[in-house]
């Protein structure tokens, strides 16, 4: 039998820290007790369901459940990575998502800068409201509207025809599908995203602008030398945080707009999972793609957080 010998000083040290801990708890236990319900909820509804991720490694049949379904290890993942269209859908996802992130952030920044220059408060509010309203419309509705507008007999093509341009099948052309996605997404998102930039711009002291104006700086010079540097940390922060969404190319939007002809430029991970997982009932396969996506997204979020901390001094924890 081994007796753990501890140094008297060490023991007294640990005893001391234990005593301190007890005193701390005796004093602060109510605070911890108040956290408890939230922790229980978190564990019950966020962590416990994660257990279901095991079906990514199983050939899942709901009749056998999580515990009884046959275990097939990494077969689902191998299957996905060997799919002939895996490369294509990953590429589409990345291209569309990155284009969307860049377009929305740049668009929002420009919009915010423009709105910031507007002196008439009423006009500014109206524009701001109008630009962020589309954010609240579902893509099911927007999709229907766009399908109609962009059809060969829709308003866009009729206008083009009047101008002597041949009708373009926007949603059926691999050249046009991505631009349509990106522009329509920008139209929907830009007003909403501009709010944060506007808030940051408003926090810049007006004295700086006044001083610059007195020194003879033009509007453009004020934008480049005061506004932009003033919100640089916000820009970096938002850009870094959006990295986590690089694998989310906008499922709802694409599902409502795409068709087989534009699969080669428009089919993304989520739409593929939807067809394979939900329509064909391959829950395991869908879970495997979801898990792979989550892992990549987590890595990206870690990178983003580190970047944000280093360059924008932003910390969450």
């Amino acid at each position: 039998m081994l007796v753990q010998r501890t140094h008297p000083v060490q023991r007294s040290q640990s005893a001391q820290s234990w005593r301190r801990m007890r005193a701390y708890l005796a004093r602060n236990w109510p605070l911890y007790a108040m956290c408890l319900p939230a922790l229980v909820l978190l564990a019950l509804f966020s962590y416990y369901p994660m257990y279901g991720v095991v079906i990514a490694f199983q050939s899942y049949n709901p009749a056998f459940g999580f515990t009884g379904s046959p275990w097939i290890g990494l077969t689902n993942f191998k299957f996905i990575f060997n799919l002939p269209d895996f490369l294509q859908i990953t590429q589409n996802t990345l291209i569309i998502a990155i284009a969307k992130i860049v377009s929305v952030q740049v668009g929002a920044l420009v919009l915010a800068l423009l709105l910031n220059e507007v002196r008439h408060l009423g006009f500014r509010r109206v524009i701001q409201t109008l630009t962020y309203l589309p954010y609240f419309l579902s893509w099911v509705v927007l999709g229907g509207v766009l399908l109609d507008m962009l059809s060969t007999t829709g308003i866009v093509n009729l206008t083009l025809q009047k101008m002597g341009i041949q009708p373009i099948i926007f949603l059926g052309s691999n050249d046009w599908f991505r631009p349509v996605l990106i522009v329509s997404n920008m139209w929907q998102q830009v007003g909403w995203s501009a709010i944060i930039y506007l808030a940051a711009l408003l926090s810049i002291s007006p004295e700086l602008y006044e001083a610059a104006a007195i020194d003879g700086a033009s509007h453009l010079q004020r934008v480049f030398h005061i506004s932009l540097p003033g919100i640089a940390s916000t820009i970096i922060l938002l850009a870094a945080l959006s990295l986590g969404g690089v694998l989310n190319a906008g499922f709802e939007q694409i599902l409502n707009l795409y068709n087989p002809v534009v699969y080669s430029t428009g089919d993304i991970l989520d739409t593929w999972v939807y067809r394979a997982g939900l329509l064909s009932g391959q829950l395991s396969l869908a879970a495997a793609v979801g898990l792979a996506k989550s892992v990549v997204s987590m890595l990206l979020i870690i990178v983003a957080w580190t970047t944000a901390r280093r360059y924008a001094g932003y910390r969450i924890f």
Partner: peptide, 23 residues
């Protein structure tokens, strides 16, 4: 069928429509 249907359907849809539309 369960495993490959989605991929095969996609292949068919893409090819057939591309042939019909002359792409």
């Amino acid at each position: 069928m369960v495993s490959f249907q989605t991929t095969l359907d996609k292949m068919r849809d893409e090819t057939f429509h591309a042939i019909i539309t002359g792409q």
